[in-house]
Design a protein around this nucleic acid. Structure first.
Length: 566
RNA sequence: GACCCCGUAGCUCAGCUGGAUAGAGCGGCUGAUUCCUAAUCAGCAGGUCGCAGGUUCGAGUCCUGCCGGGGUCGCCA
């Protein structure tokens, strides 16, 4: 694309417009039918002493046919350019591979992505999908852009939550399965709010665990083991693969040492029995950051500070992303400010990738009371519903079970990464498991139909690297080629902004363009891919294969396993 | 009270560094299936882009104020 923009800048330069200014002004018009690329001339008018339409006319006059550009036409203050379709098409199709969107921008740079990070002794609920899935996609995107990614699961294996669990064990007996752990946790949670003194007992247990009390340790180990096993089932289902699994408990000692160190060098101070870092001067309205409770126990923030230092030592990251609920926005601003205040300039490399909440009937799901639907249950229901549709639509299919699982899962995943991360999600079974419209199953469907055409066209293996692009000049084909070109850009943008939905949008637009092209052939036989004319057919199969390749690659980036039939 | 996010079609939301006639999905209506997958496609209806100012040749987009909704604000994680 860049060389086409350069070509336009060169034309503008012949009309007296500064080349760099022209280059940065070139845009894709909102109304795509109007032009492939357009140059607004408002900004050049003053310095050239002409009106914008006069400048546009001059630029259009300076155009010479041939080369990358097909035409230039002044339309008021704009110059509308058409690209040479065969040239552009050929370049784009040649560039599409399974690795579409790849670059080496991240070469030699480590990125730590902290995602998932559930609490032990509790099941994964639907809202846990968000951190896990967004984080996994960010891992995929960063790897595609050449970064060395460390996907890190930071287990919540410490604190009053564990203390409550221990109170529950004391009151209701020791659970042996994860389901029993969950029941005990919920019971204990209620018990602690209803009984005076129970919270103090929970806090005492939390502290005993910090002090490696043998009995606390024993329960901690079994809760942790059972939980990890349980999490793995869901992680396998969703293709979530962490490179490192850490837990908060490993930072108890270094956290306490850190508090002592900060007290000593006076970056932290005692306050109301606890220890705080004063952030008043570090940023506006950040207040004070508590790093030691009055009972001497550490907090989440103590461990996070210690963890950040440790990760810098272990991985020497160029970036560290925390994929966490938007409700913790202030917390992360404080955490990063605290890192900076305590002398770590690399705090600037840390970023909170925030995502919206899961709402039930318009308000936040109450997970602490055990509310919320289990993630695994949602996945199973998706699979079940997809299976019913497969039976109905394509009961001859070879591996219906696998297809149903992939399609149902696509629905769930796309709900999560198909929209901007900061949007809230309303938990509604029919919305989450919708298979119609702009959904994961739609993308699967379009991919499967592309595969189907290729099969019928005898295109069993994707090995074509060049073809006769001059056969691909229909508007539908041209739209597809542009969508393919835009997809690469979307990958880079999604990675830079930590926003998976840029990929989702580009993928959906490509899929829709392909469906439109595909059905156009139903009305007009000359537009079918599998036409009699061999040269045309070969060229069209080449295009379809590149679309198929991009759809598959895009789905995989989003953590969705593409199906070839459905 | 302070800070953050949001306010675009009946509903859920796109809208790229400001550009020419604001787009999708769902829902509604009309069509399309002896045809390369109808989990689809083509089309119609539906919008003072919360309100008021400002910057600009040009504002859904940037700035200020206000209104409305949500979230967060030291001993949870």
């Amino acid at each position: 694309m860049q060389e086409f923009i350069d070509a336009i800048a060169a034309v503008a330069a012949r009309a007296g417009v500064p080349e760099n200014a022209a280059r940065s002004s070139v845009t894709v018009p909102k109304e795509r039918d109007r032009a492939d690329l357009t140059l607004p001339c408002f900004r050049f008018a003053k310095q050239l002493g002409k009106s914008p339409p006069q400048v546009a006319a001059a630029v259009a006059d300076a155009f010479e046919p041939g080369g990358l550009l097909a035409s230039a036409e002044a339309a008021g203050p704009f110059v509308n350019f058409r690209l040479d379709r065969p040239t552009f098409t050929r370049k784009v199709l040649q560039s599409v591979t399974d690795n579409i969107g790849a670059s080496d921008e991240g070469a030699g740079q480590a990125v730590v992505i902290d995602y998932g990070s559930p609490n032990i002794a509790k099941p994964l609920l639907f809202h846990h999908l968000r951190s896990s899935m967004i984080g996994q996609v960010l891992c995929n995107l960063h790897r595609r852009r050449g970064y060395e990614v460390v996907g890190l699961n930071f287990l919540g294996d410490l604190g009053t939550a564990f203390g409550k669990l221990m109170v529950g064990i004391e009151e209701f007996g020791e659970p042996e399965s994860i389901a029993a752990y969950n029941r005990t946790y919920v019971q204990a949670s209620n018990f602690c709010t209803e009984n005076d003194g129970a919270m103090d007992r929970a806090r005492a247990w939390a502290k005993r665990l910090e002090e490696d009390d043998p009995e606390a340790l024993r329960h901690w180990e079994s809760a942790r083991r059972l939980s990890l096993g349980e999490f793995q089932t869901v992680y396998d289902w969703l293709g979530i693969r962490h490179d490192v699994v850490d837990g908060e408990k490993m930072y108890v000692k270094s956290g306490q040492a850190l508090v002592e160190e900060l007290l000593e060098n006076r970056t932290a101070e005692e306050s109301e029995g606890g220890v705080v870092i004063d952030l008043q001067n570090a940023g506006k309205k950040l207040g004070k950051f508590l790093i030691r409770k009055s009972d001497g126990a550490s907090l989440y923030q103590t461990r996070d500070l210690a963890a950040a230092r440790d990760r810098m030592e272990r991985f020497g990251f160029a970036k560290m992303l925390y994929v966490v609920d938007i409700a913790q926005e202030l917390y992360f601003r404080q955490l990063f400010a605290a890192l900076k205040t305590t002398g770590h300039d690399w705090a600037d490399r840390c970023r909170h990738v925030k995502f919206g909440q899961v709402l039930v009937d318009g308000s936040r799901a109450k997970t602490r009371e055990g509310g919320g639907t289990h993630l695994e249950e949602v996945l199973r229901e998706g699979e079940r519903r997809a299976r019913a549709v497969v039976e109905e639509k394509n009961s001859d299919l070879a591996d219906k079970a696998a297809v149903a699982k992939a399609v149902g899962t696509a629905a769930v995943i796309f709900c999560d990464v198909g929209f901007p991360t900061t949007k809230n999600i309303n938990f509604d079974w029919n919305a989450i498991l919708s298979f119609d419209g702009r959904t994961g199953p739609y993308l699967q469907y379009v991919h499967a139909s592309a595969c189907s055409i290729l099969r019928k066209g005898g295109y069993t293996e994707s090995k074509q690297t060049d073809g006769d692009a001059s056969r691909l000049t229909d508007d539908h084909e041209w739209t597809l080629v542009r969508r393919l070109a835009e997809f690469s850009d979307a990958v880079g943008k999604a990675c830079a902004e930590c926003e998976p939905s840029h990929v989702s949008n580009a993928l959906y637009d490509l899929a829709r363009g392909f469906r439109s092209y595909h059905t156009a052939g139903s009305r007009d036989a000359s537009l079918r891919v599998l036409v009699d004319d061999d040269a045309t057919k070969t060229a069209r199969l080449w295009l379809v294969d590149k679309v198929r390749c991009t759809l598959a690659a895009g789905l995989r980036l989003l953590g969705i396993d593409p199906v070839e039939e459905m």
